[in-house]
């Protein structure tokens, strides 16, 4: 029970940290908005192609804003070696990992929700809000995957002298299955592709999440030793 309690303490510390410092979530939201504008110029989005382009645009933004935010939250731990206050406490490495995964997950979900709202507003695409119920499973599964890998890898990259800059190089190749699953599911929902279900994509994302959750629980302890 103390395992979960410790994880929640760490998560609530991160929420407080975000509330005080406003260092990651606000930057994530700002980047999302900026990327939407850039995509608008780059892709010439209109009524006819928007539902085809939406999945790709949104998931690319989710991935990049996520990298930014998760890099920040792990830098906050490395700064002044603040994370040692967790390491030298009864909280286990596993609860440390879980706590960070949950706070990253929360920030990602907030960022994604706002991005979808921005998208609907900027491109007059209310339909995406209407199909949100169908999109939620793949969004959740994909975001969990992002958070699992992002938490692990942001701790990897922030020890190296390259810092957060290294994160996308490690993170993006590994989350390819999540990106494929997320984009495909959203594509199937928005474009009502005949004969294609989102089921198999959900399955692959579930497999990814379970695999990396158990693996990270085993491996995270090696990242907080010196």
């Amino acid at each position: 029970m103390s395992f979960l309690a410790n994880a929640f303490s760490i998560t609530s510390k991160d929420i407080r940290l975000e509330f005080r410092g406003k260092e990651s979530l606000s930057l994530m939201l700002f980047l999302s908005l900026l990327l939407l504008v850039i995509f608008n110029f780059a892709l010439d989005i209109d009524r006819d192609n928007i539902s085809l382009l939406a999945p790709g645009i949104l998931w690319v933004i989710f991935a990049f804003s996520g990298i930014l935010g998760m890099g920040r939250t792990s830098m906050a731990e490395r700064d002044e070696e603040a994370y040692l206050s967790i390491v030298f406490s009864p909280a286990s490495a596993e609860s440390f990992y879980l706590g960070k995964v949950l706070s990253n997950l929360l920030f990602l979900i907030i960022m994604e929700s706002f991005t979808i709202i921005f998208f609907a507003v900027l491109f007059d695409f209310e339909r995406i809000i209407g199909s949100l119920l169908e999109l939620v499973p793949s969004l959740i599964l994909g975001t969990v995957g992002f958070s699992l890998i992002g938490t692990l890898f942001s701790f990897l990259s922030t020890t190296s002298k390259y810092g957060e800059v290294l994160l996308p190089f490690l993170y993006l190749p590994v989350v390819v299955p999540i990106l494929l699953g997320g984009v495909s599911s959203m594509d199937i929902v928005l474009n009502e592709t005949v004969g294609e279900g989102t089921g198999k994509w959900h399955q692959i994302m579930i497999a990814f999440d379970i695999l990396y959750f158990s693996l990270s629980l085993l491996l995270f302890k090696y990242l907080i030793e010196e």
């Binding site: 890998i149 590994v174 299955p177 494929l180 692959i204 990396y212 693996l215 491996l219 090696y222 990242l223």
Partner: peptide, 24 residues
Amino acid sequence: ARYSAVLGIVGVIDIPVVRLATKW
């Protein structure tokens, strides 16, 4: 050594998942 070992394990484990996902 320790950090790259973690990345090595995570990276190789990814192969079957990537393979399955891209197979579709």
